[in-house]
């Protein structure tokens, strides 16, 4: 991309100043409420696993798995995108949103076949999360090892 000319800069600033802004207060409240609700459901599931005699660490994985199942199922049923339109980050940031980001492209590219469609596209959006999450944890581990060992 070349640098913008002066004329382009002026127009861009003028147009950006005039464009309607997202309803910030409404969006943030919706994200807070729905995000909070999803986490409360997570807590119910977590408490259920704890009641089976698991400790907190053991119960984390199964809780995540159940939440992923719920997010994936609601995506398959065509409901999760509607929740997302209302809740924004409230349904994107919880792990159910991670499941949605896996199932949505996979479903959509089913018609391009199971290998190059579903298989290749599944991690279109979730892939970067795994790549950078794992790389960051690895780096944090490296520092930890250098400092402590």
């Amino acid at each position: 991309m070349g640098k913008l000319t002066r004329e382009q800069e002026v127009y861009k600033r003028w147009a950006n100043a005039r464009k309607p802004k997202p309803p910030l207060v409404r969006n943030t409240i919706a994200a807070f409420l729905v995000g909070g609700l999803i986490c409360t459901i997570g807590q119910i599931i977590l408490n259920f696993f704890l009641s089976l005699g698991m400790n907190l660490k053991e119960a984390g994985g199964p809780t995540a798995a159940v939440m992923i199942f719920l997010g994936a199922l609601l995506t398959g049923l065509g409901v999760y995108d509607r929740i997302g339109k209302f809740a924004g980050a409230g349904s994107v940031v919880p792990i159910t949103g991670f499941a949605n980001s896996i199932v949505a492209p996979a479903l959509e590219f089913k018609r391009e076949g199971y290998v190059m469609g579903v298989g290749a596209r599944m991690f279109n959006i979730a892939g970067p999360v795994l790549v950078y999450g794992m790389a960051t944890a690895w780096l944090v581990g490296l520092f930890y090892w250098l400092v402590h060992k």
Binding site: P20, T75, I83, N100, S101, A104
Partner: peptide
């Protein structure tokens, strides 16, 4: 939508523009 933006089932908000 699938070519230019996101899969239709992805739960994201659209900006007012």
């Amino acid at each position: 939508e699938r070519q230019y933006r996101y899969p239709t089932e992805l739960g994201v908000q659209k900006p007012p523009t």
